[in-house]
Design a protein around this nucleic acid. Structure first.
Length: 885
DNA sequence: ATGCCGACTTGCACCTAGAATT
DNA sequence: AATTCTAGGTGCAAGTCGGCAT
């Protein structure tokens, strides 16, 4: 099928499993039905009037690429690694999946249906459903453990070694301890996996046995529960050391979409899980036929219904959770309909602006002398002053950008010229005092302040969408400040100027009153009525005027909930295609067509390692990469068949991981690297649009990011179902958190170690020592008691009560329990110090998995989802307990 | 095909109130 | 009552991806 096909909007997917009816988001107060119909009629022609007006770029120094360019490239560790790696060579044991397959005695009907797939019947299913990473993960524990600090530190080296380098990396001081923390989650994870026996190779059900056989199977054994542990250490992730600049020159300018399917906008109907529907069709056929028809909305509707009803019969829903849900199913009508219409009526009050700057009059020093500044000049000086104790304050790029922008405000003739002569301390101290004052306020004062703020903001907090009151996400206009880009962002420190009403475009229903401009005497830049988009307002980003800042509804809104659900449905759909997709790319590993081969390998990496797609980036952004933009130095071959990845990904978070891969992949990577020099693209024939175009041929609407969602959710689902025993609530929660953590590691979701982490840990170990001392003493006393002697004197010298051996034994047992608990707590704390659980929970884990699991195991959902998550996932709360991803 | 624009999701850090601990 | 710790909320940066114009 042509690469281009209309991508359906997931309406297509069916709701049947979670409820009886086609689900529709029900709005509390008003029903949408009427309006929906009308929406259908409307055409979406207004689409183009999106934010169109834009100011001319005003980036004076948008070109600051110098900094970036200066960076040196990295990638040295090859040699080191190599040796280590080899030694660590995980033994790929093979072994089976039986575990997983039996995991679920009570597969519900739906499940069974799923397993009907042609090739995956006989529970092969279970295998395919496993995240690749899990199945095939490898890692060299030894490698990680042995990593010398140098290895870590310098991603930089190869260049260095190779002499080409100008390594300019801004030095970042790191202690050895720090280094430990730098080990990316993913490595830890894989490490863990690598050790044990494992499940069979994922593709063994493929036709492509040859390839398979060549490859060693390796495994994933979850039983090895000893994740890599980083002993001590504190601190943050590595930073910039990674990539560098050679690349900039090589960079292509943006990506280029090849052919993009025309998107069928959210069409109405409810889609059905085509998955289910299709289950009886051989996948191959399915792939072909499916798209056009199935996915197209209307036809689907019917199907859906049928399907859903059939499903339903067995399911009885539990409504418990439903009450607080503001959504519910009401009709068959889809919330949005028509061509891409997102709403029919939209009422809101616009946005609120930060208060004008209040000058404090504290004079900073220049060359030791107090200087007079105008209000505007002082404002910018203050922005810098208050950042004194952040890392930014010492970064040359930051300072440089800040000074450039500040000088413009100071004017040509101002006395202040050189940063080195500036002393912002007086302002900084003033700021500290202010903070202190605020802290000292009594609770009542604070409360009053809070109420006042609330009073002012209340009207902006809500919008009325199709008659339903919904929370607005970010109604506060961003205050002016200094740009805090992540990683080595070339624009960090630039002044983010104040946004005014004349910067803002409002989007609102035609019939709604236009929000009054909150700043007297000013007016909005523009007011439009585009119901094909969900934003309420936007303005151009002052740092990069070609980009926008939008005001959207909050996550709890129906609009967001709906697309969230669609996202997960799409990922679930992938479950039905994944087997064939894997077979296909495995086959293509050996393709003579180099593009095909690159596509295959890239897809494999995205699937197996949950890499992001990797769009092209401009020179005025931090130099980070994703799959398609990997540079040759980001991947190192580690014989015989491992790859070591080391690069900075989104938010300049380091991805460092060594993985065993299929031999053909290993070889292919070698070929892709061949003849290229540092800074060049590993996948030179690829970009995200080509890759996504390819993925769309395999499954309608499939894009790279779906793999992340899929692998995250399927992992949670399987882990929960495999590991939950009939424990109590607390035990179950531990299991959940464990699964959550695995997912976070797969996705490389990291957080920086809190400043107080090490202090906290040492405090805990002190306590632990105390407890142990107590234990020793008790044991001693017990001994004595048994011999009929009195207990020894306590530390304070006072005699202790003479307890019976039984009593002492009991105390000992209690103490032991305490110690064990404490050990566990410490371990978790240490384990999680660099792992961020939240991101996956919010963005990657289908909430229905969690809700259904909670229902099955009588875990109160509140233990898993906090208030805002409950609101965000309102659409999922009434899922049938038998739901499986 | 490419580049750009546009809209929307994802992601980490920071801040804070309130819980937990002393 | 004072302090420390933590979860949860917010802020906003940084991704993804579609689609149009060229």
């Amino acid at each position: 099928m042509a690469a281009v096909k209309p991508c359906i909007k997931p309406n297509i997917f069916d709701d049947s499993e979670d409820d009886d009816g086609p689900a529709v988001f029900k709005r509390t107060s008003t029903s949408k039905r009427t309006q929906l119909n009308s929406e259908l009629k409307k055409s979406s022609s207004q689409r183009h009037d999106g934010p169109s007006v834009r100011s001319v770029s005003d980036t004076p120094n948008g070109k600051n690429s110098t900094f970036q360019k200066g960076k040196a490239v990295s990638s040295a560790k090859v040699s080191l690694v190599k040796s280590n790696a080899t030694s660590s060579n995980a033994s790929p044991s093979t072994q089976n999946k039986s575990n997983s397959s039996q995991q679920n005695a009570q597969i519900n009907e739906k499940e069974k249906k799923h397993s009907n797939k042609p090739q995956s019947e006989s529970n092969v299913e279970s295998d395919d459903d496993k995240p690749l990473g899990v199945r095939l993960a490898t890692a060299s524990a030894a490698l990680l453990k042995n990593r010398s600090p140098d290895v870590l530190k310098g991603l930089s080296s190869s260049v260095r070694n190779s002499s080409q380098s100008v390594k300019t990396k801004v030095s970042i001081k790191k202690s050895d301890e720090d280094l430990e923390d730098d080990i990316p989650l993913s490595s830890k994870y894989h490490l863990k996996l690598s050790a044990g026996p494992s499940s069979k190779n994922y593709y063994d059900s493929n036709e492509d046995k040859t390839l398979v056989s060549k490859l060693q199977q390796n495994g994933s054994s979850k039983q090895i529960n000893e994740p890599f542990k980083s002993p001590k250490g504190l601190n943050k992730r590595p930073l910039s050391e990674g990539s560098t600049s050679v690349q900039s020159s090589i960079k292509k300018s943006k990506l280029s979409p090849t052919q993009v399917p025309a998107k069928v906008k959210q069409v109405t109907v409810k889609a059905e899980t085509k998955a289910d529907d299709d289950d009886n069709v051989p996948i191959s056929q399915r792939m072909k036929k499916s798209t056009p028809s199935d996915i197209k909305s209307i036809s689907t509707k019917k199907t859906t219904k049928i399907v859903s009803t059939s499903f339903k019969k067995t399911s009885k829903k539990s409504k418990k959770f439903e009450k607080n849900s503001k959504y519910s199913k009401s009709t068959n009508v889809q919330p949005t309909s028509g061509e891409g219409q997102k709403w029919a009526s939209l009422v809101h009050n616009g946005v609120i602006f930060p208060p004008p700057y209040k000058p404090h009059g504290i004079k900073m020093l220049y060359n030791g002398q107090p200087v007079n500044l105008t209000t505007e000049q002082e404002e910018v000086a203050t922005m810098f002053a208050v950042m004194k104790d952040t890392d930014y304050a010492t970064k040359p790029k930051f300072i440089d950008n800040f000074m450039n922008d500040w000088r413009q405000i100071l004017g040509k003739n101002h006395a202040i010229k050189k940063f080195e002569l500036c002393d912002f301390t007086p302002i900084y101290e003033w700021h500290q005092r202010e903070k202190e004052k605020k802290k000292q306020m009594t609770t009542e004062e604070k409360k009053a302040l809070k109420e006042e703020k609330l009073r002012q903001e209340e009207k902006y907090m809500w919008a009325i969408v199709d008659g339903v009151k919904e929370k607005v996400g970010n109604f506060r206009v961003e205050p002016p400040g200094l740009f805090r880009g992540r990683g080595e962002h070339p624009k960090m420190g630039k002044l983010k100027r104040r946004i005014r009403p004349s910067d803002i475009t409002i989007n609102i229903g035609k019939d709604a009153p236009i929000p009054e401009c909150p700043i007297h005497g000013e007016r909005w830049k523009e007011v439009k009525h585009d119901n094909t988009v969900t934003w309420l307002a936007f303005w151009n980003d002052p740092i990069n005027p070609r980009e926008f800042k939008y005001v959207f509804l909050a996550a709890s809104s129906s609009l967001k909930g709906q697309s969230d659900k669609e996202k997960y449905e799409k990922a679930r759909l992938l479950k039905n295609y994944i087997h064939d997709i894997r077979a296909k790319y495995t086959k293509d590993f050996g393709s003579k067509d180099i593009t095909k081969r690159q596509v295959a390998v890239a897809t494999y990496l995205i699937d197996k390692l949950a890499l992001r797609a990797g769009n092209e980036k401009d020179d005025d952004e931090a130099d980070t990469v994703g799959c398609c933009t990997l540079k040759v130095e980001n991947v190192t071959l580690v014989p015989p068949n491992k790859l070591q990845f080391d690069f900075l990904g989104k938010d300049s978070i380091r991805y460092f991981n060594t993985v065993e891969v299929e031999l053909p992949v290993y070889k292919a990577i070698g070929i892709f690297k061949d003849g290229k020099s540092v800074g060049e693209d590993l996948f030179d024939k690829l970009d995200t649009s080509k890759l996504n175009a390819h993925l769309k041929e395999l499954m309608p609407c499939l894009t790279a990011k779906v793999f992340r969602t899929y692998n995250a959710s399927i992992t949670l689902d399987e882990m929960l179902n495999r590991e939950t025993e009939d424990g109590n609530v607390a035990e179950n929660i531990v299991i959940y958190q464990h699964a959550n953590k695995e997912v976070a590691i797969i996705c490389n979701h990291q957080r920086s170690v809190s400043k107080s982490h090490s202090a906290q840990m040492s405090r805990l170990s002190e306590k632990m020592d105390e407890l142990k001392a107590v234990l020793d003493e008790l044991e001693d006393d017990l001994m004595r008691a048994k011999k009929g002697k009195p207990p020894s004197r306590g530390a304070d010298g006072k005699p202790k009560r003479n307890l019976s051996p039984e009593a002492l034994a009991k105390k000992i047992a209690q103490t032991n329990v305490k110690i064990e608990k404490m050990e566990r707590d410490m371990k978790t704390k240490e384990d999680l110090k660099t792992v961020a659980l939240g991101t996956s929970k919010i963005n990657y884990l289908d909430p229905r998995i969690s809700v259904a699991w909670c229902k099955r195991h009588e875990v109160p959902i509140e233990k898993i989802f906090n208030k805002s998550l409950l609101a965000k996932f309102a659409w999922a709360l009434d899922v049938d307990p038998s739901f499986r991803f």
